[in-house]
């Protein structure tokens, strides 16, 4: 018990210190680095709180893909432009501290009252009772793709929409003008050769494992995105679709999900309601398509943030 207490204390301190540094350390680069540390500590916290699915997703998506996005942004502009300050130097920090303290007290008191406090209440037990009816044996996957599949559909739609908006910042909504690192690749060739097969294998394992244990399409998709980004940075230009295959790759997940919804309606089962005996297979197939699409979407988000080659960006003078 005491060892657990000490570990908790270390975790809480690590979270607070890394978050505080990420937010308040001077300098963009240091802030982004501390945020990456924060993400890794968070993954440990999720595991500590009995949420291995969330821990995997945090490590792969939040610390992995978000880290790549932030690092790429901060390398392009390590320093920010001149600041416009309002009022005297001490005013804004003081206001922030007062407002923050008030919010912590109010929200903290409210949060302590929230949620099912007694064991055996809430939706958790219901899900555990009904997981066997869903076609998969892992409760989180059952919630994501059977009981609340509508949420997951909208989540895929949000990701797709984000990619569509980012693409609209580029000429013709395509990414062929974004230069890929060629001979001057920042990633050693050997690392790419060694890491990518292992990452892809891991993604496949996470995808299949998601039916019966922690894992699933989103964690697998994030790993796949990592592999694609690594390949592109390693000089393999075609790894991330930028031309003809860009739109199909981004849209296939949402399209498959919607098609499944319409098929289930046409079969008279109701929107996204899957029935015996195919439901397990259908969920796995849908997850496989989602993995590819999520991987492509996240990799495209990374590529689309980069600067297009000179003279080809929209909005520049001819």
């Amino acid at each position: 018990m005491t060892v657990g207490l000490v570990l908790d204390l270390v975790l809480v301190t690590a979270v607070l210190v890394s978050a505080g540094l990420a937010l308040f350390v001077p300098g963009r680069v240091a802030s982004v680095m501390m945020f990456l540390v924060f993400g890794l500590v968070l993954a440990v916290v999720w595991a500590r709180l009995g949420a291995p699915d969330v821990a995997l997703a945090e490590a792969a998506i939040a610390a992995g893909v978000t880290g790549a996005l932030l690092l790429d942004a901060v390398t392009e502009r390590p320093r920010r432009g001149p600041d416009r300050r309002v009022g005297p130097r001490w005013l804004m920090p003081l206001l922030g501290a007062v407002a923050g303290a008030g919010l912590v007290v109010l929200l903290g008191a409210a949060a302590l009252q929230a949620g099912p406090v007694e064991p055996g209440t809430g939706l958790g037990p219901t899900v555990l009772d009904r997981t066997d009816d869903s076609g998969v044996s892992h409760p989180v996957t059952a919630v994501l793709l059977a009981f609340r599949a509508y949420d997951t559909l909208l989540e895929v739609a949000v990701l797709t929409l984000a990619v569509v908006v980012v693409l609209s910042l580029h000429r013709d909504g395509r990414l062929e003008t974004v230069p890929a690192p060629g001979a001057a690749s920042p990633v050693p060739d050997a690392l790419v050769r060694l890491a990518v097969p292992v990452i892809v294998l891991g993604a496949g394992w996470l995808l299949v494992a998601g039916s019966s244990r922690p894992g699933g399409a989103f964690q697998a998709g994030a790993l796949l995105a990592g592999a694609l980004i690594l390949l592109r940075l390693g000089g393999i230009r075609l790894a991330v679709p930028t031309g003809r295959w860009l739109r199909p790759a981004v849209l296939v997940g949402l399209a498959a999900f919607l098609t499944l919804g319409y098929v289930t309606v046409a079969l008279g089962q109701g929107w996204l309601v899957l029935a015996e005996p195919w439901q397990g297979t259908v969920i796995l197939l849908l997850e496989a398509v989602l993995t590819v699409s999520i991987g492509a979407c996240l990799a495209v988000l990374f590529v689309a943030g980069r600067r297009p080659a000179a003279g080809t960006g929209r909005g520049e003078e001819p």
């Binding site: 893909v65 978000t66 899900v127 989180v140 990701l159 699933g216 989103f218």
Partner: peptide
Amino acid sequence: PDSVLHALVLTGIVITVSVTGL
């Protein structure tokens, strides 16, 4: 732990990375 909340958090993480990328 309640798996509905874990599923919500997974959704939240994916939404966060979408918003961050945008």
